[in-house]
Nucleic acid binder design. Structure first.
Length: 505
RNA sequence: GGCGACGUGGCCGAGUGGCUUAGGCAACGGUCUGCAAAACCGUGUACGGCGGUUCAAUUCCGCCCGUCGCCUCCA
């Protein structure tokens, strides 16, 4: 089955046929760096991260451009508030964005261009627009004249008459039409500025994406993405600029837009004071839980964000992790045997792996239906658990193969979504473990624990608990377990000894 | 006023003209277990309302009600 995507421009699902099959060009509007990114931003970047990964999973070579807008009114305003240079704001929040992007596990784009490094390209487009009489200069400002561009409104699906410009904002009387938008703005003292044919100034908001996408992907590329709130005016204006300045043909083949995040049931907005920052979330929850949460709703649907959702996603993530742990445990602890096997169960597991991969692909091919794709993963998890449940005997070679194969598919599919399945044995859990481990260890071990590794302390504490359990000293055993559980570390007693893991991380 | 999305079982959330009608979370009963945890088994007469098309509609069409978003900066 071939990939189909919902194109905002046509308002339909279309077969995805890149202009050059060997090279898919994808541009996503990145952050304006004036603040830390919030969950809404994160959702959009996560959605396109998954789209990018899935295109690559499908064998496409993708040139992924995600820009940094580092010159803009909001940055200037923030700089004024703090009494610092705009460049300092831009640098600080570019760095913060990179930290958060890494925290979320976002794949690095192929190119991450900055607006300020492409002023020349922007000026060149503006010049072309003036030459073609699609733009006009007034007192050092340059405006795009929307009535001269016949297709204006085609993306947002509305006509100039539909839009009541000026109803909510005063219209600049120098504009020829209320909807005309700035390509270039003359700069006030203290603002970032560059020389241009129209005097010292700075670029308008939309022009940087036209300039940078053209530079790195050429005129006419495959996918342009962003949040739904960018459809108008930002993307509409990009179309006007890019198509207006070029010889003809369309700017972008597929326009993809991600849904908004609501907090509870209302819009997240600074004016409502309900903005949730990514870094605050990442301090509390693992990235994979947040990714799973985002993935459990289709990327175009709105998502209500809240604590219940995080709890659910945590439980769901743990379910996948547990399945992998059980496989590892079984594979490690049993020697192979060539008999005692239920061949039907082995076949069932093998076909479950195959089916999971097929259903995953079918779901993702249908406009990146991640919720359905997750279902295919959970169905495989269920099959794995059923298999393990019914097989206490030593594993035959066939059974081992089927289990290893199932594990491989699980990793393959979660990996295609950018989910990492982390077991406690892995290196970075040390950082994820709470400091409270020291307190508990000191109390239980009655020893100096300063400088010890938290992982080792947990093992020591659990060893002590095993001693208690062997003496049927349930009070001590349960005290230790409760102490760990209270700090988010789950304990599981298995025939092979106790195991622990951090919930949701 | 214009454009658009959506209303699915306790909650979240896919999906479909009838057939075997996702998945997750929660709940209840059971198995296992020192207890837990994990896991498995079992339990839910879901598709906002009213009309229409159809042999058959939750799924198509119309209207209504409700929720939300965009039309101004916003991912």
């Amino acid at each position: 089955m071939a990939l189909r995507v919902f194109n905002t421009l046509t308002r339909r699902k279309e077969d995805f046929t890149p202009r050059e099959p060997a090279r898919v060009g994808m541009y996503v509007c990145g952050p304006t760096v004036y603040n830390y990114i919030h969950v809404g931003n994160a959702r959009t970047y996560l959605s396109f991260d998954v789209i990018y990964r899935y295109l690559k999973y499908g064998g496409h070579d993708v040139v992924y451009v995600r820009n940094i807008t580092d010159v803009e009114d909001k940055i200037i305003n923030k700089a004024k508030e703090e009494g610092v240079e705009p460049a300092e704001i831009a640098e600080r929040f570019t760095r913060a964005f990179h930290e958060d992007a890494k925290g979320l596990g976002l794949a690095k784009p192929t190119v991450e261009p900055k607006a300020t490094e492409h002023i020349r390209e922007m000026i060149s487009i503006i010049k072309r627009l003036i030459e073609k009489d699609l733009a006009y200069a007034v007192d050092g400002d340059v405006y795009f004249e929307v009535t001269k561009f016949p297709g204006y409104g085609k993306l947002a699906n509305r006509t100039l008459e539909d839009m009541r410009a000026g109803e909510r904002v005063d219209v600049d009387p120098r504009k020829r039409h209320p909807m005309d938008f700035a390509l270039w703005k003359s700069s006030k003292p203290g603002e970032p500025h560059w020389d241009s044919p129209w005097g010292t100034g700075r670029p308008g908001w939309h022009i940087e994406c036209s300039a940078m996408s053209e530079k790195y992907l050429g005129m006419g590329f495959d996918i342009h993405g962003g949040g739904q709130d960018l459809i108008f005016p930002h993307h509409e204006n990009e179309i006007a600029q890019s198509e207006g300045a070029s010889a003809g043909g369309s700017f972008v083949k597929y326009w993809l837009h991600g849904g908004m995040v609501n907090i509870g049931e209302e819009k997240m907005a600074k004016s409502l004071g309900n903005v949730i920052l990514v870094r605050d979330l990442l301090a509390e929850h693992g990235k994979d839980v947040l990714r799973l949460l985002a993935l459990s709703t289709h990327y175009r649907s709105p998502i209500d964000f809240g604590p219940d959702k995080i709890k659910e996603a945590t439980a769901a993530y743990d379910r996948v992790v547990n399945a992998v742990r059980r496989i590892e445990r079984r594979l490690d602890s049993t020697t192979a045997s060539s008999f005692g096997e239920n061949p039907q169960a082995v076949n069932a597991l093998s076909s479950a792996s195959r089916r999971a991969r097929e259903e995953f692909g079918a779901a993702m091919d249908d406009d990146f239906n991640t919720a359905a794709a997750l279902a295919s993963i959970f169905e495989l998890v269920k099959e794995i658990n059923m298999f393990l449940e019914g097989h206490d005997a030593a594993l035959s070679m066939e059974a081992r193969d089927a289990l290893e194969d199932a594990r491989g598919v699980l990793f393959e599919l979660t990996g295609a979504l950018g989910l990492e399945i982390k077991l406690p044995e892995e290196e970075d859990v040390e950082d994820l473990l709470p400091e409270a481990v020291y307190t508990l260890a000191a109390e239980v071990l009655k020893a100096d624990v300063v400088g010890a590794s938290k992982r080792e302390l947990i093992d020591q504490v659990l060893a002590l608990r095993e001693v208690a359990r062997s003496k049927k000293d349930w009070v001590t055993a349960d005290f230790i377990r409760k102490g760990l559980v209270d700090m988010g570390i789950e304990i599981e007693d298995t025939p092979a000894g106790p195991e622990w893991r951090i919930r949701g991380k």
